[in-house]
Computed example of a mutant assay.
Amino acid sequence: MSAALATFFGAGHLRPASGTWASLIAVALAVAAHQAGLALLVPLAFVLATLAGFWAVPRYLSTRADSDPSEVVIDEVAGQLLAMCFTVIPLWRHGVADLALAAWPGWVVPFLLFRLFDIWKPWLVGRADRRHDAAGVMLDDLWAGLFAGLCSTALAGLYHGLIQPWLS
């Protein structure tokens, strides 16, 4: 069970760039939940993925020599879902039903920013990654998801508050 959860039911074996594939799957699940009128499943899924990751990753790593094997992607799923919460919850509160087409920047921007922070590993993301333990595997992606969500919100605020009114 720990291997299934750590690899997000085999998504971690997709190549190349298993973390990117897992992030895309998380985004697709978040968009699908929102489109189905179940936007609040996204924060619930984030909490469940985080708890599952903190349970499964140490168990999975105990049988491996590598402290962060590429097939472990539950951390990317949790981090990407956290970033998506910053889009899904406000859009749900404002009654925006079409996240897939009408509000496409609401999922593209958090995806791109999450991948940027996960690869670049600035500040707390890098500090967590340098732990080289199971908690670090999870924490670097949670920090990346938080930063991606905050930056997405700031960019949306700039666009809707300054740029869009100026263009009108």
Rank of each mutant, 00 (worst) to 15 (best):
D75I: 00
A45M: 05
A49H: 10
D68N: 08
R115F: 06
L91P: 04
V27G: 05
A148I: 05
L24I: 13
R127N: 07
A4S: 15
G53Q: 00
G37T: 13
A45L: 07
A135N: 14
G95P: 12
I74S: 02
D129P: 13
V47L: 14
F111A: 09
L116C: 14
P43G: 06
L44S: 11
A6R: 02
V73D: 03
L124G: 06
S67F: 14
G10L: 07
R131N: 07
V31P: 07
R127D: 05
L142C: 06
L48C: 10
L40S: 09
T7V: 02
G106H: 01
I119Q: 04
C151N: 14
S23P: 07
P90H: 04
G161D: 03
T20L: 06
Y159N: 12
I89F: 01
A3P: 11
D141A: 03
L29E: 08
W123Y: 13
W104G: 04
A26Y: 02
K121Q: 07
L51C: 14
R64T: 06
S152T: 14
L142W: 00
V88T: 08
A26C: 10
A11H: 02
L139I: 10
Y60E: 05
A154D: 11
L124W: 03
C85V: 08
L29C: 13
W92H: 12
W143S: 06
A83I: 01
G95T: 14
A135I: 11
W123T: 14
S62N: 10
V27T: 10
R15A: 15
G37N: 09
G37Q: 11
F54N: 08
D141Q: 07
V27Q: 03
H132K: 15
P105H: 09
M84D: 08
F111N: 08
A100I: 09
L61N: 03
G10Y: 05
L112N: 01
